[in-house]
Design a protein around this nucleic acid. Sequence first.
DNA 1: GAGTGGTCTAGACCACGCA
DNA 2: GCGTGGTCTAGACCACTCT
Lengths: 239, 239
Amino acid sequence: MDSAPQYRPLYSQVYEALIKRIANGEWKAGQSLPSEQALAAQLGVSQGTVRKALDALALDKVIDRRQGKGTFVAELTQERSLFRFFRLTRADEQRAVPTSGDESIRRRKIRSPEARALALPETAEVFEIVRTRFVDEQPIAVERIVLPESVFPRLDAHSPLPNALYALYQREYGINIVSTHEKLRADLARRDDERRLGVPLGTPLLQVERVAYSVDGKRVEWRLSRCDTSHLVYDITLT
Amino acid sequence: MDSAPQYRPLYSQVYEALIKRIANGEWKAGQSLPSEQALAAQLGVSQGTVRKALDALALDKVIDRRQGKGTFVAELTQERSLFRFFRLTRADEQRAVPTSGDESIRRRKIRSPEARALALPETAEVFEIVRTRFVDEQPIAVERIVLPESVFPRLDAHSPLPNALYALYQREYGINIVSTHEKLRADLARRDDERRLGVPLGTPLLQVERVAYSVDGKRVEWRLSRCDTSHLVYDITLT
DNA sequence: GAGTGGTCTAGACCACGCA
DNA sequence: GCGTGGTCTAGACCACTCT
């Protein structure tokens, strides 16, 4: 009566094994993994099989492969993490570099929609970060970020938080964000937006609701961004 | 003094060769390519090299590979093309199936922003389609679609147009849309939106500006959608 | 020159779809 | 049972990086 997959390619098992070891912190961000040959010998499979698993991990941006140098756990440097998940772009196609300001962090009980989005119990404790983001000194978005206290203990000790949060998650908590799921809608600026973005009440804003996934597939962050798109646009390629 | 790539893997050359033959219509949508063995013999490379090229094509969704059956030029059926590039989703995560109505098509001279977006001369002739899209009988978006007459001759003869345009491009013109680039911003409903969407003037709308690319990398469609996101959201996963 | 990932090959065997 | 794509292996050689 079991409906298990009943067949699992070797390389896919290698993939899972390596993901687990990375998630466990055996190799940290920026550090190199053993060579293909070494991993193959260690795992008792051929180099080609290890290669296929590593290629898949590289495709998922979990690792970086550099010919002649080695294989490294992907590092979310400030720049890279900013550009990878921050989609707001100037009309002239130049990537905009965001900075942060007017930031606050507090601990509170999770709210129902957040609990649903993060698949957490209604009793969970979270940190809530509220901040304004700037591009070219102009406020362009207000963000509310909710993080489980269980995943990010004592997060408030790191205040003021760096510009690129995902680099912090990785460096301080070993949490690697590898994908995000976003829901976009248009909304009108409210009092709060008016104050933080300096736009008139009723200005159309792009609201982005995001859930971020760590390398082991867990939902670890929920955030709501409300963006003034009069000068920047949300830019995306679909394939 | 030349800065040419000066090294080009075999499989990448095979990839290009196959793309060209598909773009030329040697194998049409839904038809099967020769087997890996046959292609390898034909091209004078090993099966593994052909496989690597085919895997890349499958990743780019240009072909479909089906174990036990063969390799097929990807077919943009109504359903598939609708779901692949139509990102509006119900809040309950169910994919919404759009229909079309209130459609018009006319031929005119291209306008400057469109010419820039499509990399066409200012003198080009285009077809402009305007239509309203519905989900659950409710109007949810108004679309303006601009297509070069040189790429889609006599397009108006196919009126009324089918719901999934990309399937039409493929079937009638051999144009395979493989990727799109979109710019999103929030805007307020204008008179025209009011009329077509039945929303009050000033309702916040999600405006999506899209350029679509065919399999040979050419820009073949520009479209502007203005969406009412009060019931549907634009849903996207980033990796 | 040594070590790494990247390419290319050849061959065996497996899972799947179909007749 | 045959033909297809999918997996796995083993080995040779190439391109890149660093010492």
